[in-house]
Design a protein around this nucleic acid. Structure first.
Lengths: 246, 246
DNA sequence: TAGGTAATTATGTATAGACAAAGTATTGAC
DNA sequence: GTCAATACTTTGTCTATACATAATTACCTA
């Protein structure tokens, strides 16, 4: 993330006589600072040591407050960099379906080119909870009516087996369902960024080109990991329709 | 929750030479025990002190592991009682709409009787994050085509104003939207239990009666709390249709 | 001016310990 | 048999400290 000039020094008053835990008071204070504009998107908080020294608070206590806000997507932390207020982005609910299912439902002719099918480990996948150590990485180029649309990178547990023919013929979720996977909970984040040169070439976009990005992690009804995906969509070709997801 | 005879002693091996953090190794071990059946729904884990003494682990480290699984809905903890594997229940996505909206969309005649409209504090509401200290509690009896259907208890921040006439005339979300509320993220849990005698009387159900319960906490696109609701539906009258929610 | 290296910054992980508070179990009085 | 008081159990909150590690910045040299 891009650093800012000076970390913001929050005006926080902690009440040690309150029944509200200190970590929660701090979380509320940071939250209020965000909602009133005292902390703006992109602003950095004081580093943990400075904040806790100034407030007379223990560092694990402040970290617990910050972690709550990180879990809710309001803050983001990076080692060696600091804690930053999340840039606002459009976050919309979307059905727990695959792109293939959606395109087919819309009457589009779906094309899939398999780019990669390889084993990998959890280390390369950033932070979805419940990730098994060994995964399979599936990378595909998806087209609609002959027009390139998206690069889809998905990570699957090794207890599912997928092959090249199946991946090019149908949607990933259909393959997983055929193996008993149930889809119950998904955490999904949608954003945008500029494409990398490699992505632009694959998608046939002149540079510079914007893309819609979608990260999704799916769990079944016992909380077990089903798959996580990182998808890049041509912004010129793709929008998202949504509804509430729990 | 109901206690079980003996907490389950997990077979956990921690590898201190692994780059995987210890808290994460423990979280994975507990998760695997749940998915393999070594830990069954309703089972209790060893208490924190016993577990960490046996594993040679610090208590905050183990608590971090457990907290991850609590956040994912796999475990539930209660002070003085212990940590328990969550009983599986049907969890389905549902639209971010109010019951009023859904009934009206279905062509039903919606009736609302206001039972209570009173100020209250956050203490009485269990655990949704981002809750302001002062709230307004709204409690209503909802009917469809003259048939009693649900008891709806909602907690609103005091920056929204609602009155009795409005609440009986239209849906809560319509009233909030009229005051600028935006609905973006909802966390929702659906379950079932037996009705209390008071609920059964209000809903006109002979006892014993089962009810569908729904707890929902709604946030806007900056992560700010909009409302939280605890709804009780006559199981004989109500089912839920769902889609994915992020 | 650019590249490499070292130092600095800030978060991540972990240990140890103590006290608070909610919930349960036990005990004793009536 | 019931109820209140007490003891016990277990999680919740908090402090203090230290080391690890990723990322950035500063400095040096070619």
């Amino acid at each position: 993330m891009e650093p800012v000039e000076t970390p913001v020094e929050l005006d926080v008053e902690l009440d040690r006589t309150s029944p509200v835990p200190l970590y929660h008071q701090l979380a509320l204070a940071i939250e209020r600072a965000i909602e009133t504009g005292a902390l703006k998107p992109g602003d950095r908080l004081e580093n943990e040591v400075a904040l806790t020294t100034r407030l007379g608070l223990a560092r694990p206590t402040a970290r617990q407050a910050i972690q709550e806000l990180v879990n809710r997507g309001m803050l983001v932390r990076k080692r060696g960099v600091g804690t930053q207020v999340v840039q606002p982005h459009v976050r919309r609910d979307v059905r727990l379906t695959s792109l293939f299912d959606d395109l087919e439902a819309a009457g589009r002719e779906v094309g899939t080119e398999l780019l990669e099918l390889a084993p990998c480990t959890a280390e390369e996948v950033l932070d979805p909870p419940g990730l098994p150590d060994e995964l399979v990485r599936v990378r595909r180029l998806r087209s609609a009516d002959g027009v390139r649309l998206a690069i889809l990178t998905n990570y699957l547990p090794t207890w599912y087996t997928v092959d090249a023919a199946g991946l090019e013929r149908t949607g990933l979720y259909a393959l997983l369902r055929a193996q008993g996977a149930s889809f119950r909970i998904a955490h999904q984040t949608i954003g945008a960024r500029l494409m990398t040169p490699a992505e632009a070439e694959l998608l046939g976009e002149p540079e510079p080109a914007a893309c819609v990005t979608m990260q999704r992690s799916v769990y079944d009804d016992t909380g077990r990991f089903v798959e996580t995906g990182m998808h890049v969509y041509r912004a010129s070709q793709y929008t998202v329709r949504t509804s509430l997801v729990v």
